[in-house]
Write a protein that binds this DNA or RNA. Structure first.
Lengths: 197, 197
DNA sequence: CCGTAGTGAATGAGTATTCAGTTTTCTGCC
DNA sequence: GGCAGAAAACTGAATACTCATTCACTACGG
């Protein structure tokens, strides 16, 4: 079997897992259910993934790879100011999650299942993502547009916190709003704060 | 048995549950383990709680009652400006979680187990908590110190998002920092934003 | 001495993972 | 092309658990 065909099957299993886990939750989804949706036998799952948990982590890895790739494109753009980069970053985060509700559910809910999984995830790709935000903030202070005394990493976590809460709130809301529509108010608050200027 | 003694036993079970679930996770903790730590038989748990899930929800209810009580005290204080109220609110949130790591773990991780539980929780006490933040922001716009065009509820969610991320980050970090030490930078960013003024 | 509270072994449902057997794909040869 | 044999991929029923919940019985307090 060619590498390409194997890769495609792996993707099919991951897609099936995203769909089922988003709807029934990680513990509510059996490996059999995922296998059935992917059109393979239960045992086949274990040819591609070490365990059910490994499957969940692989969903995360695949998604974060895309997130980080796109985010890096924004951060590394030449001749773009920090403010504009931040604007784009916020829009990107909200768009990527807002365009795939199943994935959003998994990111906002299912990945937080146990301290153990959360620790594993946050130690990996998550760090890179936060570092990218921090880079934008550092650029901003260098340009003199962002405050001089900013702790870039801490501030990056706050930026992430806002985006994360927007996503969770959207996932939980029944209303049919677009997540990306919150880009502007989020950026405004981040840049200008609550105070009147 | 007096109501008081019954209440005390219920509290003991809740305390035991907080401790065990924080350490092993909800799914990693058996009802037997909780019973053993509380010094009661397995069956006794079911005299006080409908199910294991009800136990988790009861932990949330008990904690949120305290949170909301203390938060309401801040929001309803007479003769205090919105900026100062926000400062106090941030400090309160970070202190309450920072002083009880087990409870913090449960809040930041275990409560988010399934969409189902999260929905249940966010529809109840969580709403009130957000509403309290929103009230402070509204007061600020009325006073003219906060921006006029603020969507108070949306901004409240952003405030909450930052606090929530600070707490999660603290829970996941091995370092021995105090969560409350982040009060000042959080408040600064919220009030003044990233931009130089 | 009775009703309330508590007990903990038994139940029964659920399911991740394995593995002996089957099918498909690949390889080298005519 | 086509074919045998080997290797790789796949299958799904059986295994080997784990645990929430129940309930017949016991102990206790008023």
């Amino acid at each position: 079997m060619t590498t390409q065909r194997k890769e495609a099957k792996r993707e099919r299993i991951l897609d099936a897992a995203v769909l089922e886990i988003a709807r029934r939750g990680y513990y509510g989804t059996t490996v059999s259910t995922i296998a059935r949706r992917a059109g393979v036998a239960d045992g086949t799952i274990y040819l591609y993934f070490k365990s059910k948990e490994d499957l969940l982590v692989s969903i995360f890895e695949r998604a974060m790879q895309r997130f980080n790739f796109e985010a890096a494109g924004i951060v590394e753009a030449d001749g773009v100011g920090a403010e504009e980069k931040l604007r784009r970053f916020v829009a990107l985060h909200l768009s990527l999650l807002g365009e795939d509700r199943d994935l959003a559910v998994i990111f906002q809910v299912e990945f937080r299942h146990t301290l153990h999984i959360l620790e594993r995830l946050s130690r990996s790709r998550m760090r890179d993502y936060l570092a990218l935000i921090a880079r934008v903030l550092e650029q901003g202070t260098e340009e003199g547009v962002f405050k001089r005394d900013l702790d870039a990493l801490l501030a990056a976590k706050m930026v992430f916190g806002i985006l994360d809460e927007m996503a969770t709130d959207w996932v939980l809301s029944k209303k049919n709003t677009r997540l990306a529509s919150r880009s502007a108010p989020v950026t405004d608050l981040l840049l200008g704060g609550l105070r009147t200027s």
